[in-house]
Design a protein around this nucleic acid. Structure first.
Lengths: 226, 226
DNA sequence: CGTCTATTTGATGGAGGTCAAAGACAGTGG
DNA sequence: CCACTGTCTTTGACCTCCATCAAATAGACG
C-alpha cells in the first residue's frame, strides 16, 4: 500500500519534510503504512531485518530487556520521530507502542537508497539522530547518580516540556504518557518508589494529581531538580 | 595551519576516509590540528561556538556536571571517533582529554558546508552517530537497574573488547583507560564501591590486578554479567 | 456486585553511599 | 639515599535510601 502523504499529520515536521514534493512521492512508493495497538511490538531486538519508520500518531517506547527479564526504557518516540536502524545487520532494541499508533515503515535498504539519492534526507536524519543522542545522554545524566526524588521530578519536567508547544516552556496540565511501571522502568526505580515520590510532591504542594495519569504543576519551583 | 592527512594515524578509519583524496585535502584546509594534554578541556557545555572534531590519538571523555558539581561520564571517545555538535547553537556537554590527545578540529559551519558538498561524508557521520546512540543506550541499560557488581563487570568486559582488535573477542591483558573516580562517574557509583568490586573479582579469581590500571582477565566466566 | 488490574501505603532489610583512616606510589628536595 | 608531600587506592564502620514483600484502595469493566 502506498502512502497518502497529503493527509499525513506530520508532513511538515517529519524527516521527509525536507524533500521536494515529487521526491517525497517517490519515497512514499517504498513505504507502507502500519498501525499498532497498545502494547503491540513494531521491532524486536535481534530481528535480522533492518528497517526504519516515521511515527505519525501515538507514542512508542524503545526498550531493552536484561537477562532477568527486567525491562529498561531507553527512549520515547513522539509523532514525527524517526526510528532508524538502517545500517546494522539486526535490530538492537525492542520498539513497542505505548498506545494506539500509526507509522510509515520502510525497509532498511530502500531507505538507504533514498538517503543516497536525496542528500538532504540524510542530513535531516543526521540532525535528528544527534538530537536523539543528546536526549539519550540527558536521560543517562538524570538516572546516573541522582536521587529517586530528582529522577521523578526530572521526568515530570521533561514531560511538561514535551506537552507544551514551545520547548522552553512548561505545560501546567498534562497527562503522563507512561504508567507507573513504565516510568519506573525508564528511571531505574520501582513502581512503589515512583508512586511515593508523586505522593510526596503532591503533599508538598508542587503538583496535583487527577486520575491515574493527569498531572497539574502547581509550583514547579518546589520540585527538587538537580 | 593546514592538516597533514598523509601521516594521519586514523586516515583509513575516520569519517573523512569516505572522501576522495582531493575532497579530503579540500576539507583539510578548513581544519586545524589541536593537541590536548591530560585533563585539558576541548569543549565546555554552554559554549556558543558550534564545532566538531575527529580524534587522532589519545582518548576523550564526554561529561555533564550536575548542580552539586558531581560529574557524570556520558561517553568515551577513541581514536577515529567523531565529536560533533554541528547543529545546535551551543555545546551540550564538556569534552575533556583523558590523557594526551591529538585532534582535527573544524568549525560547525565549515563542517556543515562540507557535509552539503560531500553527501558521502554526511552518510558516514549518520552511521557513526547511530553507533554512538546505540553505545549511549547500552550504557543506559547497564547503569539502569543493574547491581554495582554487574556494572563494574560490564565495564571491564567493554574495555577488554575495546582493547582487542576484533570487537567480538576479549583482550586478556589491558590497561583501564579510566581512574577509579572516572570509572565511578561513568557507572553512577562511588570510588569506594568500584574499588571493592575489583577487589572482590580478584579475590574470586576472575581477574588479577597489576599496578593501578593493569587488568588481566583470568576467568571472565566468573564475572557476574547480566 | 464481583473481578481484574493499577496504584497507593506500610514495614522491613540490604546494597551501596558516606565518613574516616591507612596504604601505596611517584615526585621533590635535602 | 631518605624523609616529605600529594594523589590515588584500598579497607573498615556505619547509616541512609530505596528495593522488596505484603496488604489495602481505587477504578475499569463485564
Amino acid at each position: 500500500m502506498s502512502l497518502a502523504c497529503d493527509t499525513c499529520p506530520v508532513r511538515d515536521r517529519a524527516a521527509c519534510a525536507v524533500l521536494e514534493e515529487d521526491q517525497r512521492d517517490e519515497l512514499a512508493k517504498a513505504g507502507r503504512t502500519r498501525t499498532l495497538s497498545k502494547g503491540e511490538t513494531l521491532f524486536t531486538a535481534g530481528e535480522s531485518l533492518a528497517a526504519c519508520a516515521t511515527l505519525k500518531k501515538g507514542a512508542l517506547k524503545i526498550t531493552s530487556t536484561d537477562i532477568d527479564g527486567r525491562e529498561r526504557i531507553l527512549s520515547l518516540v513522539h509523532p514525527s520521530g524517526f526510528i532508524g536502524e538502517m545500517f546494522g545487520p539486526y535490530m538492537r532494541h525492542d520498539v513497542v507502542a505505548l498506545g494506539d499508533a500509526e507509522l510509515c515503515v520502510f525497509s532498511g535498504p530502500d531507505f538507504q537508497r533514498a538517503i543516497e539519492r536525496y542528500p538532504r534526507l540524510g542530513q535531516a536524519l543526521l540532525r535528528r539522530t544527534q538530537e536523539d543522542l543528546f536526549a539519550s545522554r540527558e536521560l543517562l545524566a538524570l538516572t546516573g547518580n541522582a536521587s529517586a526524588e530528582t529522577r521523578v521530578a526530572g521526568a515530570l519536567v521533561s514531560f511538561a516540556r514535551a506537552a507544551s508547544d514551545s520547548p522552553c516552556h512548561l505545560a501546567t496540565r498534562f497527562d503522563l504518557p507512561l504508567s507507573r511501571g513504565e516510568l519506573a522502568d525508564m528511571l531505574g526505580l520501582t513502581i512503589e518508589t515512583v508512586s511515593r515520590m508523586l505522593t510526596r510532591f503532591e503533599r508538598e504542594g508542587a503538583i496535583r494529581r487527577t486520575g491515574k495519569r493527569g498531572i497539574e504543576l502547581i509550583d514547579p519551583a518546589l520540585l527538587p531538580l538537580s
